[in-house]
Design a protein around this nucleic acid. Structure first.
Length: 886
RNA sequence: GGGUCAUUAGCUCAGUUGGUUUAGAGCGCUGCCUUGACAGGGCAGAGGUCAUUGGUUCGAAUCCAAUAUGACCCA
């Protein structure tokens, strides 16, 4: 059925696009027809794995941006005929989730310490089942076309098994080892953290100068420390061997205040003679540098803290008190007893836990480590040498290089219960009385062999209590979601892996991106993805990070309700140049919503036209041809933007194409007079072009575009927009585009005069042209239609008593009734003349420079000559007008 | 302390390996315009000596150096 046979249907279509009414409908429709679902087939695959959000998380602006970009890429790939697969999922986020569960239990009066591991995990799973996955439901509201049948959780049985398999494998390769090391201890979460999870903050503190007595004399030696509570763990005083001031103390012993232990005075060049007194107390259990000194000089190690950073029995009367309370108390005692010489203000960097914000305590303990030195090699080469993995924007390669080249072994154990339990089984008390195996059965067999004790039973095996770092499961994500760890040769992983694009934030470049690249090469000898698109951080208008504490993060679902998912998507993307932080401003969502409404109303216009058996007007035919060229030109630009992951530029190109070129120009050119019908050819062409526009819009505004598409014509499920074809590039007629641009100048000139002289649009005017440019008359009908010019006369001399304007060297005259203000006209022309002369001068200056003419490429010189000729022609026109006016 | 990146219109940003009319966009701003698809709209307009100072070049927003300011990363 043709459009025009439904007369004035726009009366029945609301004049405002109502997103709330259509979004759920189309999402359900897409789901029902399984357009998001992907299975391997003969088509080219295009896959993305979602950066799995924390199971505890709720949708915030960062997720919105990130997932909108992924959806744009996936929907475009789908339109391009690829087998698009976007795998969604969630991360168990061990510290964050465990902390939340512990807090919840506490509020119910239950202490984690009173629960068995099994009981605690039951609570955690209950919690996950109840609150987990909210975020995935929210992504649906945003329009994300994930293959929900593939939803994965990092603690699913198969994902769990993958992690264990990888651990065993790396252990057997000798890359995982157990070590007694100084680690970052979070005394609140009671677990270690990797270096990356420690956030350094500058804090104003005190530098305490403490006097230690020298054994067997009345002399004292003064040291400076920021942590007086740790003196109880001191096992040496260290001086620089080149420091004359302390030379006489060689070989002597100092007495630690309060606990009165005698400790040796050692010498090491490590000591900075400039800092403090040039004399250092050494506490190997509580400082990484002191630990190194302690090992070098074989010092005793005295750990004075409990796991929660309260003091233990070495703390004497302070036992059981928190380290910061002790710091105050002990400095008081030291002062009272005369050991405290003085204090100074001191700014130092304090490590804090990313998750709990607790001040990190360096702590010696047994942990599991992954050797990184060799593992990183292929991953470095892939990004920095072969470019098998490309970063957008490229600048993040520097960050990547810096970290990878200075990488340290990865502490992968966490003293938590929520996660994959480390598959190490102890069968005795010796340092090496353990085996690593994927199951208890295998462990028993291995233990029997290792211990040479065939009588071992399951009872004798004790599995390591710790779990693995969450990132030790997410680094396998692109492989494990396709079952590629457990069944390395399965059809799915062979088809979808390597994935194509990864979209994530630069804040997890080390945590996640780098490690996925490492694991990709280690376990599949292939990159995990080809391109990594780093989004910026979402900030508020004042450039502050969005955070719960500041309360500056808008409610994502409310935004969608208010502006429509499409509006929010457009709003986010418009300001999201890759890698730049984006200042989120709700006004941009409003802009997105307005755009949706604009398209909606263009649709109403077209839908409302009645068709009649008419000749196609010349202007309409020309306009349509011009738009075809313009569309292809824009398409080329859009493809180029996509190839560089310039998503917001691609959107802006479409925005301008649709709003300016299609709506403001083309529709105005073809629009019949009020209540007049349109000819069939024009209508069909416009509908077809509109549909092409919708295809371009679909990745960005899936709901609106599908809605309009489905209203435009009756469609079968196979003809839905989401599975239609991305436009194919056609020819660009440069002459048409140039001709239009010139006409644009003429039209603007006429409109300006109408405006200045308050000549209403409904009053027809006539136009005379002094055609110095020999411009084609092709566009006259278009000019006439858009400016209500009744006739265009070509003349060979300036018209007296008319208003004038110029485009290039052409001059246009509009006769008006009444007298014209000659002085004003003269002034206007004089102004243009001054500008053009100035311009000509700058061009001539260049051309008269011999070295320019000799050295510049011919193309550039030709261009300059053209500029010169154009300017000269224009000046001639202007001077002629000046003469005729005065 | 070490490193990376940035500084272009009121705001947010483009400017593709130095030359495409004496710098572009979107938003905002100013003025005019409503029975006509859309006031969530139309049309027109104003607004920048490209952070500063030197240098390289026939030619610099673009390359180099220094300075200033800011952001991020690492220890």
């Amino acid at each position: 059925m043709a459009y025009g046979q439904i007369p004035y249907q726009n009366m029945e279509i609301p004049s405002k696009y109502e997103s709330q009414k259509v979004e759920n409908h189309w999402y359900d429709y897409w789901m029902k027809h399984k357009y998001f679902h992907s299975i391997p087939n003969e088509k080219e695959p295009y896959s993305i794995v979602i950066p799995p959000p924390n199971v505890t998380g709720i949708l915030h602006m960062g997720h919105m941006l990130n997932n909108t970009i992924q959806d744009v890429l996936i929907r475009r790939a789908r339109l391009m005929g690829k087998n698009a697969c976007w795998v969604p999922g969630m991360d168990h986020a061990s510290i964050a989730t465990e902390a939340k569960v512990v807090a919840k239990l506490k509020s119910e009066g239950i202490e984690k310490a009173d629960l068995t591991r099994e009981a605690f995990l039951k609570h955690a799973w209950d919690w996950t089942d109840e609150y987990g996955g909210v975020i995935l439901e929210q992504l649906k509201k945003l329009g994300c076309s994930c293959d929900w049948d593939r939803t994965k959780f990092t603690l699913d049985d198969d994902m769990y098994a993958s992690v264990i398999k990888v651990f065993v494998d790396l252990y057997n390769k000798g890359l995982i080892y157990r070590g007694y090391r100084m680690v970052n201890w979070d005394p609140e979460a009671l677990t270690t953290l990797s270096d990356e999870e420690v956030v350094y903050e500058e804090k104003q503190g005190l530098l305490y100068y403490l006097a230690y007595k020298i054994e067997g004399s009345d002399e004292t030696v003064t040291i400076a420390t920021t942590r007086p509570e740790t003196i109880l763990g001191d096992t040496a005083i260290c001086i620089n061997p080149n420091d004359e001031r302390y030379r006489h103390l060689r070989g002597k012993k100092a007495i630690v205040p309060i606990c009165n232990r005698a400790i040796p005075i050692i010498e090491d060049a490590y000591v900075d003679v400039e800092f403090g007194t040039g004399c250092l107390k050494v506490t190997p259990a509580h400082d990484i540098n002191d630990k190194a000194l302690g090992e070098k000089h074989q010092l005793e190690v005295i750990d004075i803290f409990n796991a929660d950073a309260t003091l233990n029995s070495y703390g004497l009367q302070y036992e059981g008190q928190d380290r910061f309370a002790v710091r105050k108390a002990i400095s008081k005692e030291l002062k009272a007893k005369g050991f405290l010489v003085k204090t100074e203000q001191h700014l130092n960097k304090v490590g804090t836990s990313e998750r709990t914000k607790a001040v990190i305590e360096p702590r010696l303990s047994d942990q599991w480590f992954l050797k990184m030195e060799d593992l990183v090699k292929p991953a470095i080469a892939a990004v920095l040498e072969t470019e098998e993995v490309k970063f957008f924007p490229k600048k993040f390669e520097n960050t990547y290089r810096h970290w990878m080249e200075n990488i340290r072994d990865w502490n992968i154990s966490r003293q938590l219960w929520w996660g994959q339990q480390i598959p190490a089984y102890y069968f005795g008390d010796g340092q090496n009385d353990f085996v690593v195996a994927a199951s208890k059965e295998e462990a028993l067999a291995a233990a029997k062999e290792k211990s040479q004790n065939a009588n071992l039973t399951f009872e004798d095996l004790r599995q390591d209590e710790d779990v693995l770092d969450t990132w030790f499961s997410s680094w396998l994500w692109p492989i494990s979601v396709f079952g590629g760890i457990m069944e390395p040769d399965n059809e799915e992983v062979n088809y979808y892996y390597p994935t194509n694009d990864l979209v994530t934030g630069p804040d997890i470049i080390f945590f996640w991106v780098a490690r996925m690249i490492i694991s990709g090469y280690e376990f599949r000898e292939k990159r995990p993805f080809e391109n990594v698109y780093f989004t910026g951080l979402v900030r508020d208008k004042q450039r502050r990070k969005m955070s719960k504490q500041l309360g500056n993060s808008p409610d994502a679902l409310k935004l969608i309700e208010q502006y429509g998912a499409d509006g929010v998507r457009v709003g986010l993307l418009l300001s999201a140049a890759a890698g730049n932080d984006l200042m989120f401003d709700e006004d941009l969502c409003q802009q997105g919503k307005n755009f949706a409404n604009k398209i909606w109303n263009a649709f109403r216009l077209v839908k409302g036209w009645e068709v009649a058996d008419l000749q196609q007007p010349e202007a309409a035919q020309l306009g349509i041809e011009w738009y075809r060229s313009k569309f292809n030109q824009a398409l080329a630009e859009i493809e180029d933007h996509f190839s560089k992951y310039r998503i917001s530029d691609a959107l802006m190109a479409i925005y301008k194409l649709v709003w300016d070129d299609f709506c403001s120009w083309l529709l105005e050119i073809v629009k019949p007079a009020y209540q007049q019908p349109i000819d069939k050819r024009t209508l069909e062409a416009i509908v077809q072009l509109f549909e092409e526009n919708l295809k371009l819009l679909h990745p960005f505004m899936p709901f609106l575009s599908e809605e309009v598409w489905q209203h435009m014509n009756k469609r079968t499920p196979e003809q839905a927009l989401i599975v239609s074809q991305w436009p194919v590039m056609g020819e660009v007629n440069a002459d048409l585009i140039a001709g239009f641009d010139f006409a644009d100048g003429v039209i603007t000139g006429i409109r300006t005069i109408r405006k200045e002289k308050q000549i209403a649009m409904k009053d027809a005017i006539s136009l005379s042209v002094l055609n110095e440019e020999k411009a084609a008359t092709t566009w006259d009908t278009v000019i006439g239609k858009l400016t209500n010019v009744s006739e265009i006369a070509y003349v060979d001399a300036p018209i007296d008593g008319a208003l004038s304007f110029r485009v290039k060297s052409n001059e246009y005259f509009i006769p008006i009734s009444g007298t014209i203000d000659v002085a004003a006209e003269l002034e206007k022309i004089q102004e243009e003349l001054t500008y053009t002369k100035g311009f000509l001068q700058s061009v001539e200056k260049k051309l008269s420079n011999e070295r320019f003419v000799q050295n510049a490429p011919e193309k550039v010189i030709a261009l300059e000559r053209k500029k010169q000729a154009d300017a000269e022609a224009k000046i001639e026109t202007l001077e002629k007008s000046l003469a005729s006016l005065s």
